[in-house]
Design a protein around this nucleic acid. Structure first.
Lengths: 195, 195
DNA sequence: GAACTATACGGAGGGTTCCTCCGCTTATGC
DNA sequence: GCATAAGCGGAGGAACCCTCCGTATAGTTC
């Protein structure tokens, strides 16, 4: 409200996130690494204080970087999701569209299962992009887009039901992840659903 | 190891559970009622101390009756499960076997969804009887038996895939419960799976 | 109905986790 | 080098988990 000079606008878009200071970036990485381990070991309820301890960082630092447990989980999974997305991109080149779709869903399944219980609550949240704001990061949307494309190809080929949509598929896979335990069953069920 | 007289064996089978004292039975009921409310309100992680408080009972009493959270959840759900089982029994008289199966699965679905998040972890545990010991209470086994019968009838009628088995069905329903949110979707998916 | 005892009750207490708040430290730009 | 914005750490209050044990009482026996 005083006559302070307004900060000069850069020519870039108003850079939503100012770059992290070097030490902050380092701590963030340590936290992510520790979180990955803890979450895989103890599920999504792993102790945040233990994560901070393992990262050799104060608990306050953890909360500054990831104000909620969900945000931390989300960050940990983004890597995985991105890798599945990348696989999907490759599979779009695959000649057999149905096979590509199957492979991709299995990859998604495996990936999500690797995160055990985490899958249930978090992955579903991550995938249901529409329920988030418009400014939501695009990792999950991209993944869903790839899934939709793969499905569309299989439908064009005539090997997937025309009335299925990609949301159904994603939901079904998530469902299987959260409800089944052993690998054989999971695969068998997945195959059955594709028909 | 001393010369104490051994207690006289009754003629009944060794009565695994001695009858509860009157006050104990009363407190047990209060705890179950309070737990039902709390679990539906806050999910399976509801505070046990709050449940005890609402039941106007000491926390020690809660733990004496239900040494673990799972046992309390299980007790709360047994009622529901038994009611679904009863419905299944009725539906066995239904002439249209496919319709009966559909109705029953929807009932199971609705029932399980009513318990929101609880469904995921606990109901699945409850339904996967085989993984428990042989002395497991029969409520869940009965329910699964009814489900299997309904499925068998539909298969005999030719309206259900012969390669499906009842475990698949139960798993799928559980999966849907834990992965879907809104009712329309759920019903649509369920219908799709039946074909 | 009094006395006795197995059964059940309550809640204090020690340990853990969650999350916030704020005084101190340090990286970065000048 | 210095100023300061950005970041750090951990003490602290609140909630929760679960155990333990001294006290109370229902049920039984005479």
């Amino acid at each position: 409200m005083s006559s302070l000079e307004a900060p000069v606008e850069t020519n870039e878009a108003p850079a939503k996130e100012r770059r992290l200071r070097a030490d902050a970036a380092r701590n963030r990485d340590r936290l992510l690494a520790a979180a990955q381990v803890s979450f895989e070991q103890h599920g999504p309820d792993a102790s945040l204080e233990e994560i901070a301890r393992n990262a050799e960082v104060g608990i306050g630092t953890l909360y500054r970087h990831f104000p909620t447990r969900e945000l931390l989980l989300e960050a940990v999974f983004r890597d995985r999701i991105e890798s599945v997305t990348a696989l999907g991109d490759q599979l779009l080149a695959e000649p057999d569209a149905f096979d590509a779709l199957t492979q991709w869903l299995h990859a998604h399944l495996t990936n999500a299962s690797a995160c055990q219980g985490l899958a249930g609550s978090v992955v579903i949240e991550l995938l249901d992009v529409d329920t988030h704001g418009e400014d939501h990061p695009p990792a999950c949307a991209q993944m869903r887009a790839v899934g939709a494309e793969l499905l569309a190809r299989a439908q064009a080929e005539g090997t997937a039901r025309p009335d299925a949509d990609s949301e159904d598929l994603v939901r079904l896979v998530n469902a299987l992840v959260s409800a089944t335990a052993d690998a054989e069953d999971r695969t068998a069920l997945a195959d059955r659903l594709f028909t």
